[in-house]
Write a protein that binds this DNA or RNA. Structure first.
Length: 283
RNA sequence: GGCUCAAUAGCUCAGUUGGUAGAGCAGCGGAUUGAAAAUCCGCGUGUCCCUGGUUCGAUCCCGGGUUGAGCCA
């Protein structure tokens, strides 16, 4: 059975083009590993594969969700696994393509034995001062408190959430999973498309301009109700501000490009740690 | 042409009663297993426009120049 091939890299690094190329070469089908290309109706601002691309090679999990839905890494894994299995059963190679590090990690290395996020509990914690959450975590699970970034509210509340939901220590649950990840990495095959930073920045600038010239604004205008999850797509808030007349077109373009560059940098930091990925240097 | 003001980090600007300078943004580095295109942490990257002078010492004071803005002609 053909093993999946993972294609990772920063946004605008050219993953989609590489995926198409490899799909032809390996008789493969492309599976999305991008948190925002999962949503329908945001094809332009998320730079999802074009209609033509999708006709050349089968694409899966693009536009699989309604913008009013929410998703997390665990659910993504549940969506992707059967799709990958199905491709394999037909003797084709799954070419998993995307830049969402956490989602890819969930897919490749599996979930730790942790409960999924609880909206109600999160809302409650959101209302509390950070110091209070930190104090509570220190009390319940000092080991986890020690290794958590205590200035990062999200990380503190997640750790606390795990403890409260399970009645066990987050530190112990996480350790169980951590111990087996190295072994999994050895069996994986994937590439990380790298570009010189200046080239990446130029590609981002070009793509941002292209999006705004080719329907991104209309796309956001017409999308309707979107989940809190979905509206975090880079470009969404910026274009909403443009539509509301709060910023002009040039500012909008500049803000989107900046946010995209910053995101690309975080992606590279993530992939740099994934030692199982093979570097593919492009110009 | 005359006068006035400005010139400091990639950008916008602060500052130094004369002891070679610091904020925001950008940028760079990092963390990150269930919000991740999220969230958080760290780092100043500099002919202080040029050139003479005064001074132990000038980015700062004085003269000249250059560039830009404004006002008067």
């Amino acid at each position: 059975m053909p093993e999946p091939l993972y294609i990772c890299g920063a946004t605008a690094s050219g993953k989609s083009a590489k995926a198409l190329e490899l799909a032809a070469e390996l008789d493969g089908e492309i599976v999305n590993a991008d948190a925002f290309q999962l949503f329908r109706g945001l094809e332009i601002i998320t730079a999802a594969p074009t209609h033509e691309d999708r006709q050349r090679v089968p694409h899966h999990l693009y536009g699989a969700l309604d913008p009013s839905e929410r998703i997390d890494a665990g659910r993504y894994r549940e969506l992707a696994l059967p799709v990958i299995k199905d491709i394999q059963s037909r003797g084709k190679t799954p070419i998993v393509t995307g830049g969402s590090g956490l989602y890819l990690k969930f897919l490749t290395h599996g979930p730790a034995p942790l409960p999924k996020g609880d909206e109600t509990m999160r809302a409650e914690m959101e209302a509390k001062p950070l110091e209070e959450l930190v104090a509570q975590l220190r009390e319940i699970d000092p080991v986890e408190a020690e290794r958590t970034d205590l200035q990062n509210r999200r990380f503190v509340s997640r750790a606390l959430e795990i403890c409260l939901l399970t009645g066990e220590k987050a530190s112990e649950l996480r350790d169980q999973w951590e111990s087996q990840t190295a072994e999994i990495s050895e069996s994986l095959e994937g590439i990380w498309i790298q570009r010189p930073r200046e080239v990446l920045h130029a590609r981002i600038a070009e793509r941002t301009r292209w999006m705004l010239d080719n329907g991104a604004i209309e796309e956001v205008q017409d999308i309707g109700d979107v989940s809190e999850n979905c509206e975090k797509a880079i470009g969404f808030r910026e274009i909403r501000a443009l539509l509301a007349g709060e910023i002009d077109r040039a500012t909008c373009e500049q803000q989107i490009a900046t946010a995209t560059r910053q995101y690309a940098k975080r992606q590279e930091t993530w992939f740099r740690r994934e030692k199982w990925l093979q570097a593919f240097k492009a110009l």
